[in-house]
Write a protein that binds this DNA or RNA. Structure first.
Lengths: 199, 199
DNA sequence: GCCAATATTTGAACGTCGTTCAATAACGAG
DNA sequence: CTCGTTATTGAACGACGTTCAAATATTGGC
C-alpha cells in the first residue's frame, strides 16, 4: 500500500502535527496517542514512525507550533509600546493564552520526555526565540548594560512568568481568593524591572 | 492471604511511599509503576489500590514527603538571617535541591495528573506551607503592608523561583554559557524585592 | 479446639499504550 | 506487462493502570 494519496512526506508530517492539536482540543491532552493521531489522518499507527522518531518527537513538533502562536501573540502585544509596557504586555499575553486552558497549552506545559531523555537542541533553539523577544525590549530599555546582563534578565523574567503560568494551569498554585494570576504576573514583571533598572 | 505480616494499613502506606522514592532514586522516575512499587515492598500490585486511590494518589503522597524535605531545608537555610537574606537563602536552597537532579525532584516537577484530573485539596494545602514560610519573612520585612500584598509577593517570588528550577531541571531552559541558574535565582529574588520594597 | 465470619491479599484479566517489523499493496521504469 | 522499489499496513510484543472474583489468614463465638 504505497503512495495511497498524493501527500508528500512533509505534508504528512504537517497533517500529523495538526491532528495532534486537533485531538488535544477536541478530546483532551490525554487522548493524544499514536493510535488516535493515526486514525485522525487515516493511516496506520506504524506509519507515524516513518515520519517521526517517536512520540516525543511528534509532540515537540506540535508544541513548536504552539510556540509560534505564542511568539506571534507576544510580538503583537508588544507592538508600538514603550519597552517597560511591552515587556509586561508580552508576559500578560502569555498568561492569557495559558489561562484559556486550551488543551494546546496544557500539552506545552505538561509534556515530559519519556525515560528522562534530553530535550533536543532544535527545540531549545525554538524557545530561545522567545527570550530574544524580551532581550530586544531590554536593549531599548537599557542600551548601555552588558549583553550578558540583559540575557540574564530576560531569562529571569521569562522563567518567572512561566512559573506563574504553569502553576496556574496545572492547578498547583494555591490562589488565595484575593490573589489573581494576572496580579501575580504584573507584580513579578513590574517589581523585577524596577529593581533591575535601579541596580 | 490476610495480614501476611504485622504491618498496619498506615505502615504499608509509608512503606509504599518509601518504595516510590527508592525506585525513583535507583532506577529513575520512569521506572516507578504500580508493579515495581508492589514488587519492592513484597506485595501484589492490586494491594496498592487498597492503600491508595490510584497512581496519582500514591505519587502525590510521595511528593508530599519531598515537600517536607524542602520545607525543612528552607527553614534551615533561613534560620538566623535577616529577612532579605533569608528569602534569598530559601530560594537558593530550593534550587540546590532541584539541581542535584535527584530523581526525587524530577518526580515532584514532572508529575502530571492522569486524564487532566484536579490536584486534590490536601496537596494544595501542603504547598501552602511553603508560601507561608516566605510570608513570615515578608512580615518581618514589611510589617506595615497589607497581608494581601505579602501573600501576593510570596506567591510571585515562589512561582518565579519554581519556574527557574523547573526549566533548569527539565532542560528546557536554554542556559547561555554566561548565565548560571544560581545567578538567575539571585537576580529574580533580589530585584523583585528591591522593586517590591520601593513600591 | 473448631467453625463460621471477616478482613486481607492475590493474580489473572481487561483495555490501553509506544514501538517494531515482516508482509503487502501500489506505483514508476523498462 | 512485468519487475523492483517504496510506502503502508496490521499484527505482535511487552509494559502500563486498574479491577475483582477467588483464595487465604485472622478473628470472635461457642
Amino acid at each position: 500500500m504505497a503512495r495511497r494519496n498524493q501527500h508528500s512526506r512533509e505534508e504528512l508530517q504537517d497533517l500529523a502535527v495538526a491532528a495532534v492539536l486537533k485531538i488535544a482540543e477536541r478530546d483532551g491532552v490525554h487522548a493524544v496517542s499514536a493510535r488516535s493521531v493515526a486514525r485522525q489522518i487515516g493511516y496506520a499507527p506504524g506509519m507515524l514512525y516513518h515520519l517521526f522518531e517517536n512520540r516525543d518527537d511528534l509532540i515537540l513538533r506540535a508544541n513548536a507550533c504552539t510556540l509560534d502562536t505564542l511568539a506571534a501573540a507576544m510580538e503583537n502585544a508588544s507592538a508600538k509600546k514603550a519597552p517597560e509596557k511591552a515587556l509586561l504586555a508580552m508576559a500578560l499575553a502569555y498568561l492569557q493564552l495559558a489561562q484559556r486552558e486550551s488543551p494546546r497549552w496544557k500539552l506545552l506545559f505538561e509534556h515530559v520526555m519519556a525515560d528522562g531523555a534530553e530535550v533536543p537542541a532544535w527545540y531549545q533553539a525554538y524557545s530561545e526565540r522567545l527570550f530574544s523577544l524580551l532581550e530586544q525590549q531590554l536593549l531599548l530599555l537599557a542600551p548601555t548594560r552588558a549583553p550578558s546582563a540583559r540575557q540574564l534578565a530576560a531569562r529571569a523574567i521569562w522563567s518567572g512568568v512561566h512559573g506563574v503560568c504553569l502553576l496556574a494551569v496545572t492547578g498547583k498554585l494555591d490562589v488565595v481568593s484575593s490573589v489573581r494570576e494576572k496580579a501575580l504576573v504584573e507584580s513579578l514583571v513590574n517589581h523585577y524591572l524596577t529593581g533591575w533598572l535601579a541596580a
